[in-house]
């Protein structure tokens, strides 16, 4: 090992976090899991609807929403925070659509215009009202998951039950809400994402579900924000879903797999962060990316290795997938 990569010390990297610093390790890994899983579940719909860029947009444009919420309420209470994020999220979606439908600007360009402008407004607001808005731009961008265990604890029943640090409790509630919404609206979300025209003809307004999805996305992003930051949230939105979709052709299985990918990314990322003495959130994203890479190469159905093997089999004149697919033509 050289000076840049710390030596891999088994005790320091693997044992100590769960022995000496159990409490803080537990909350950090749990927070990482909850944030990644909530983002991953919503992200699955973004990927399927070809809206990955919209996730990018909303994670940035939530910033002015937070700044304005701060200005109005004087502190960042959870209610004000969510309200600010939802307003910003819906506004972003509306603006993108407005620019796209009322001009010749195409959707991707409209997304770029909207979120960068809103983000810039957020930066200016925070600078101008620095005395009133206590938002650390650095923290908003990169997040600081290591501070999570230090946050004040949420107490229940007059302090009889201590639930855990505030951000973790919030994230857990948001995660459960996301699962509940997906379960309740599973068929509506499915038909609106797969075939919006049919959905509309059946009486399920794709527009309503589109905006609903954006509202939930804004809430998820803003609650994951503090710990992983605006930039890494984008990775959390896309990576678990992309990994899971390479593994299974069935949406319910994909959902479960993306939660599993989230758990693995968080755990492995945490240890990577401890080892490298670097940003834990950053390490979690790197772990998620590594998982994607592994799956991309080794996935039993769609992996690179499998593709390569199949191509070779066709060259050899053996049984090919193409033949199998077209076997039924009458």
């Amino acid at each position: 090992m050289n000076d840049f990569i710390p030596a891999f010390d088994w005790t320091r990297v693997v044992i100590d976090p769960w022995a000496a610093q159990f409490e803080s390790s537990f909350w950090i890994v749990l927070m990482g899991f909850l944030a990644t899983a909530a983002c991953g579940l919503i992200g699955n719909y973004l990927i399927l609807r070809r809206m990955a860029l919209v996730g990018d947009a909303i994670s940035h444009s939530v910033l002015p929403g937070l700044a304005v919420a701060f200005l109005f309420s004087g502190s960042l209470q959870i209610g004000a925070m969510f309200a600010g994020a939802i307003v910003a999220g819906v506004l972003t979606t509306l603006l993108i659509e407005l620019i796209h439908t009322k001009s010749r600007v195409k959707t991707d360009a409209a997304i770029g215009i909207t979120f960068c402008s809103l983000f810039a407004i957020g930066v200016i607001l925070i600078n101008v009202f620095a005395g009133k808005i206590h938002l650390d731009t650095e923290c908003v961008l990169y997040g600081e998951i290591s501070y999570v265990p230090l946050e004040s604890s949420v107490k229940w029943l007059g302090g009889a039950i201590e639930l855990g640090p505030r951000p973790v409790v919030t994230m857990a509630l948001v995660f459960l809400a996301v699962i509940a919404l997906i379960v309740v609206f599973y068929k509506e979300l499915l038909v609106c994402s797969f075939d919006p025209t049919l959905a509309a003809s059946l009486g399920f307004s794709p527009k309503v579900f589109h905006y609903g999805l954006m509202v939930v996305l804004s809430v998820v992003v803003v609650s994951a924000f503090e710990s992983v930051g605006a930039i890494l949230v984008i990775a959390m939105l896309i990576l678990p879903g992309a990994t899971a979709q390479l593994l299974s052709p069935r949406l319910p299985v994909v959902m479960v797999l993306s939660v599993l990918a989230a758990a693995l990314s968080s755990l492995l990322g945490y240890h990577l962060g401890v080892w490298m003495r670097c940003s834990i959130a950053g390490a979690m994203v790197v772990a998620a990316a590594a998982l994607f890479l592994l799956v991309w190469i080794f996935s039993p159905e769609q992996g690179l290795l499998q593709r390569w093997r199949r191509a070779r089999r066709v060259d050899d004149g053996g049984e090919s997938r193409i033949e199998e697919n077209n076997g039924y033509s009458s």
Partner: peptide, 20 residues
């Protein structure tokens, strides 16, 4: 008009006809 790579099977698609 639809994405045929969508992670659903034949039965899932036909069931959509029942949603209305």
């Amino acid at each position: 008009s639809v994405d045929w790579d969508f992670p659903v099977n034949v039965m899932d698609v036909v069931m959509m006809g029942r949603y209305g």
